[in-house]
C-alpha cells in the first residue's frame, strides 16, 4: 500500500490524491488550517487542485477558535 503521512498519521495514498482528498480522509472539517506538503505551503484556493505525491509528509496545522 502506498501511503502519505498526515500530522504523523499514516493514510493510504491514491492516484490523483489532492489536498482536499487528504482533508476528507482525515475528516479535517475545521476552516482555520495551514497546509504544507513536503514543506511547501498550499493555499486554500489550491486545496482542490494540488496533487499530493505518494510518500509525502503533509502537515495540517489547525489554529484555534472559539470562546
Amino acid at each position: 500500500m502506498e501511503t502519505v503521512s498526515v500530522n504523523g498519521n499514516i493514510i493510504e495514498w491514491t492516484e490523483g490524491m489532492t489536498v482536499r482528498d487528504v482533508l476528507n480522509v482525515m475528516k479535517y472539517t475545521f476552516k482555520l488550517l495551514i497546509v504544507d506538503v513536503n514543506g511547501e505551503h498550499v493555499k486554500r484556493d489550491q486545496y482542490d487542485t494540488y496533487k499530493v505525491p505518494k510518500n509525502s509528509e503533509v502537515n495540517v496545522i489547525h489554529l484555534m477558535s472559539g470562546g
Binding site: N7, G8, Y28, F30, N59, V60, I61, H62, L63, M64, G66
Partner: peptide, 10 residues
C-alpha cells in the same frame, strides 16, 4: 484551548 495544537497537529 490547546486541543488542536496538541491532539491534532502533534
Amino acid at each position: 484551548w490547546l486541543i488542536f495544537m496538541d491532539m491534532v497537529n502533534n
